[in-house]
Amino acid sequence: MANLKSDKADITKLYKELVIKHASNPYNFGSLKSDAVRSTGINPLCGDKLEIYISTHNDTIKKIRFEGVGCAISIASASMLTEILKDTSISEAKKIAWSFISELSSNRELSENDFIKNNKELSILCAVKDFPTRIKCVNLSWQTFLSAFDDDIKITSTE
């Protein structure tokens, strides 16, 4: 009989401290008009679907919004993404997204000046690493954001 003491983070704490705040009233929820880059992300395992809209000017993200259906963790993660990446340069935003996605699948110690370590909400969200079945929920919006800058993505423009 296995009775291993659990040293995992308390998931209910993660929900109460962070997830519900964002999921019940997410930032930047909705769509953007047709001059924005639009990227779709789907998690086929659970049927969650997100659309991210990005409007840039001089290589800086000026507006970023998202819409879709998903669990509280995926909605909260998308909400945080829009707050964090708004008003950053595209290259900086991509760097943050890559860094966060790789952080979720690694055991490395973050350096003191790492963006994630210095962002209170992202570092709390990293607790999801203890719940491997839910990492994809957090990842979905960040991967969707990155795929917006792939060559294959459709860019609709009125100009």
Binding site: T12, T133, R134, C137
Partner: peptide, 12 residues
């Protein structure tokens, strides 16, 4: 409440 959130909190 999304079913995955129910599942995670129950698993806890």
């Amino acid at each position: 409440i999304h079913s995955h959130d129910i599942g995670t909190i129950l698993d806890h």
